[in-house]
């Protein structure tokens, strides 16, 4: 658990002239389940998008497995914040999960029977196999989140990065997702998850990054999850 699988060095990200992330440094420990915690507008989603190279930073670096290239992203399964896809798209649950296999196919090659089997077993893990032929618009919020986690599993990546996967879903789905994450950790996977519910941080995570534009505290959950650190993050809103 000692290797840093992702490293962020002195990152600055701005929207126009509004800095959203300010001199941020952090590291993601391999095989950890790490929470990113901070108030609304703290720059959590911006940090994740910068790691995924979806936003160009003003300055600073992101290293993934010791590499800065775009290829390194293929090692990451990314689950975006809700509502970032076209839910009316004519596609079925199995179709969406199968997209996780595209990363191993490259241009032009089609997924085959093997990929389909992998997709089906990912659906089984998330208890969604009965819904495989449903159109995605017919799913509830929790079911949608399960489908996206199944897609991530299907990708068979080493690192999972998720933006508020537990926001607005039913308790059954929440428990199932956490159980799945813990068992994937046993298989050696690493997780970086934006989390909004302060009451469950200690139960679900073993590491945390508490942030508000820059990092307030980061490390082992026992060391960083203190009232003082949390207050600091939530009181300093807008202070920069």
């Amino acid at each position: 658990m000692d290797k840093d699988i992702i490293k962020v060095n002195d990152l600055i990200v701005a929207y126009d002239d509004e800095p959203a992330i300010w001199h941020l440094n952090m590291a993601l420990k391999e095989n950890s389940i790490t929470a990113i915690v901070g108030p609304n507008g703290a720059g959590k989603s911006t940090l994740i998008k910068s790691i995924m190279q979806l936003i160009k930073p003003v300055s600073g670096e992101v290293w993934i497995n010791g590499s800065k290239s775009r290829k390194a992203l293929k090692e990451i399964a990314y689950v975006p914040q809700k509502g970032e896809v076209n839910w009316d798209f004519p596609t079925t649950v199995l179709d969406v999960v199968m997209m996780g296999r595209y990363v191993h196919k490259g241009w032009l090659k089609r997924p085959n029977k093997k990929d389909r089997e992998i997709a089906m077993s990912a659906l089984r893990v998330m208890k969604m196999e009965a819904f495989r032929n449903r159109q995605i618009s017919e799913l509830s919020g929790g079911q949608r989140q399960r489908v996206f986690l199944a897609r991530a599993i299907c990708q068979n990546a080493g690192i999972y990065i998720m933006d508020e996967p537990l926001q607005g879903i039913d308790i059954t789905t929440e428990k199932l997702i956490i159980k799945t994450i813990k068992s994937l950790q046993q298989e050696g996977k690493t997780f970086l998850i934006v989390h909004h519910n302060l009451d469950t941080v200690e139960e679900y995570f073993d590491h945390a990054v508490i942030m508000n534009k820059s990092v307030i505290a980061a490390g082992d959950i026992q060391d960083v999850w203190t009232k003082e650190n949390i207050d600091k993050a939530y009181m300093e809103m807008g202070a920069g």
């Binding site: 995924m52 190279q53 979806l54 775009r70 290829k71 992203l73 293929k74 990451i76 990314y78 975006p80 970032e84 896809v85 076209n86 798209f89 596609t91 179709d95 969406v96 997209m99 595209y102 990363v103 196919k105 490259g106 241009w107 032009l108 089609r110 997924p111 990708q155």
Partner: peptide, 22 residues
């Protein structure tokens, strides 16, 4: 026909398509 998979994934979820290398 050739770019079916690429057209599909980039129309449905462009960010994901970018991240997985398209």
């Amino acid at each position: 026909a050739l770019f079916y998979k690429e057209l599909k994934v980039s129309s449905f979820d462009p960010k994901f398509a970018y991240v997985i290398g398209f």
